[in-house]
Simulated assay, not measured.
Amino acid sequence: MTKLERSQIDFSTFMLYRLAEHWGKSVPDTYRILDKANAIDGYLVPCYDMLHTLGSEYLVNDLTDYVREQGICI
């Protein structure tokens, strides 16, 4: 595993826990929502270079909007 891949995993995990807290859901339920929206492989990882420089509050709101745009109820 490369250093970049490890950083992407760490970032995705961090966001998973922040979203779970913000949404008031368990981590497994939050992961299922993100997986259904393809938010990890389709957004967080490919856009890591830009996203990891942003604040967590902004990212929580951005990912919430992203999931809703995919037609998924939180």
Rank of each mutant, 00 (worst) to 15 (best):
L19A: 06
K3P: 01
D62F: 06
G42F: 10
A37V: 02
D65I: 15
M1S: 13
Y31R: 15
D65G: 13
S26E: 10
L63N: 11
Y31E: 12
T53P: 00
K36N: 08
C47P: 07
L51N: 02
V60P: 01
Y58M: 03
C47M: 05
D10S: 15
C47H: 10
L44T: 06
T53D: 13
S56Y: 00
T53M: 12
K36R: 12
R68P: 02
S7E: 11
A20G: 13
H22Q: 15
D62G: 04
F11L: 08
P46R: 04
A37S: 09
G55R: 12
L59H: 03
V67E: 10
V67A: 07
V67K: 00
M15G: 11
E57G: 05
M1F: 09
D35N: 08
L19M: 08
T53K: 12
L16P: 01
T53S: 07
D35L: 04
Y48D: 01
M15Q: 14
D49A: 12
D41V: 03
K3F: 00
N61D: 14
C47N: 15
Y66L: 07
L19G: 10
Y48M: 07
A39L: 09
Y31V: 09
A39N: 02
T30K: 07
Q8F: 01
R32Y: 07
L19D: 02
R32Q: 13
M50N: 11
Y43C: 12
R6Y: 05
D10I: 02
G42M: 09
I40Q: 00
D49Q: 04
M1N: 07
I9P: 01
M15I: 12
T2A: 06
L63R: 01
T64V: 03
Y43P: 03
F11C: 00
E57S: 06
T30F: 09
E5W: 03
Y17V: 14
Y66T: 03
K3N: 01
R18S: 13
S26T: 15
L16C: 11
D65Y: 08
H52I: 05
E57Q: 13
D41Q: 12
V60C: 10
G55P: 02
A37N: 03
